[in-house]
Amino acid sequence: MPDKPQAMTAHLAAMQRDVYTVESLVSVIVACGDNPKRTGLVIQAAEAAQELLLTIGRGLDSVELEKVAA
Rank of each mutant, 00 (worst) to 15 (best):
L52W: 05
A48R: 11
T9Y: 14
V30K: 10
Q44Y: 05
L41V: 11
K37S: 13
V26C: 01
L60S: 02
L60M: 08
L52E: 06
A69N: 09
L52S: 07
A7F: 06
D18M: 11
Q50D: 13
A13C: 02
P2R: 07
R58V: 09
Q44P: 02
G33C: 08
R17V: 10
E23Q: 11
D34I: 00
D3C: 10
L25F: 01
I43Q: 12
P36T: 04
A31L: 10
G59V: 07
V22I: 10
L25R: 04
D34K: 03
E23D: 10
L25P: 09
V22E: 05
L25V: 06
Q6K: 11
L53W: 00
N35A: 11
G59S: 09
L54V: 06
T39Q: 12
K4Y: 07
L52H: 10
A69W: 09
G33N: 12
E47C: 03
I56L: 01
C32N: 15
G33V: 00
Y20P: 00
S24L: 07
E64Q: 15
L53M: 09
M1R: 01
A69C: 08
T39Y: 04
P5Y: 01
M1A: 14
V63P: 03
N35D: 15
M1Q: 04
G57W: 03
A14F: 08
P2H: 08
D3H: 08
G59Y: 03
D61N: 14
L65W: 06
I29E: 12
E47P: 02
L53A: 07
P5L: 08
